[in-house]
Computed example of a mutant assay.
Amino acid sequence: MENRKVWDPVVRLTHWGVALGIVLNGAVIDDESKFHTRVGYTVLALVVLRLVWGLVGSRHARFADFPPNPSASMDQLSDMVSGRKRIHLGHTPLGALMIYNLWASILLIGLSGYMMTTTAFWGIEWVEEMHELFANWVYFSALLHVVAVILESRRTGVNLPRSMVTGVKSVPSEKV
């Protein structure tokens, strides 16, 4: 196994900060509290920071390293079905699609959450429904993400959760 530094501190901070904020707002904090709003804006700020970091950050943090690529995503699905183990140092193609899905959904949660605090949209049912719809979509997507990370870790032999904690991926030398 070869240890490769992949995830920089900004990637890891934004990843775990967003995850914590989503769990807090979804399962712990009362939706009507000011703390819910503060946590929501913090999550939004972390996503914006990550988007900026996608332009100026380290190699594997940059969008150029994980463009949304349906063809590569289909290849990854084919690998999974056939048992072929292709190691991706950065994000996998399917992981990239999930990341863009989560970021877009979180931005829409933030927009609808902000709209609910304005006099123009306060109490408007479709805004609240949009907020709830995207929140539920993020919970579902995050669950799917966690399951996929666990399955891919087992399938490829690369401990993906550990790499997002330490910043280092341990990968088979011949696969890099």
Score class of each variant (00 low, 15 high):
G90A: 09
G167R: 08
N3G: 06
L151S: 12
K5H: 08
L111C: 07
S71I: 14
D75P: 03
W103L: 01
N159L: 13
A148P: 07
S170R: 15
T118R: 06
P70V: 11
I99K: 05
L94H: 00
S153F: 10
L133S: 08
G21L: 02
A142H: 00
R155E: 11
E128W: 08
F140H: 07
F63H: 09
W122Q: 10
V81S: 02
T119G: 15
E132D: 14
A135L: 05
E2L: 08
L51Q: 12
T118C: 07
P70C: 12
H88N: 09
W103Q: 00
V23Q: 00
V18P: 02
W126T: 08
M98N: 09
M115G: 02
R154S: 12
A135N: 00
R12V: 06
S82Q: 08
L97I: 11
A27W: 15
D8M: 11
L89C: 10
G95V: 10
V138R: 06
I22C: 08
L151I: 15
D8W: 15
L144G: 14
D8V: 13
F134N: 03
L77W: 11
K34L: 14
P70M: 13
R62I: 05
L49F: 14
L151M: 13
N159W: 13
T118I: 13
F134P: 00
L49S: 08
A96D: 00
K85M: 12
G123T: 02
T92M: 05
K34M: 12
W103S: 06
L143E: 07
G95E: 10
D31P: 15
W137M: 07
V23H: 02
L94Q: 00
V56P: 10
H15P: 12
H145Y: 07
G123R: 08
M130G: 01
F66H: 08
A27S: 12
L24A: 14
I29R: 01
N101W: 15
W7M: 09
G113M: 03
Y41T: 08
H145I: 05
M130Q: 00
H15N: 10
M115H: 05
D75S: 09
V146N: 09
P70F: 11
G26C: 04
S141E: 12
V47C: 07
L97Q: 10
R38Y: 15
G83A: 05
E152F: 06
M80L: 13
V176G: 06
L44K: 02
E174S: 13
F140G: 06
A96R: 03
A142C: 05
P9L: 09
L46C: 07
R62Y: 08
Y100E: 04
L143A: 14
L107P: 01
I109T: 01
A148C: 07
L44Y: 02
G83M: 09
R84N: 10
L24M: 14
P70E: 11
V47P: 07
Y114D: 02
V176H: 07
V127G: 03
G83V: 03
L102M: 14
E125N: 09
L151P: 04
M130F: 05
I106R: 03
L144D: 04
N25V: 07
A135C: 06
V48D: 04
S105T: 04
V10P: 02
G123H: 09
M1E: 11
P93W: 14
E174L: 06
G17V: 12
W137V: 09
I150T: 11
I150H: 01
A104P: 01
A72H: 03
N101L: 13
R12E: 10
I99V: 14
Y139K: 05
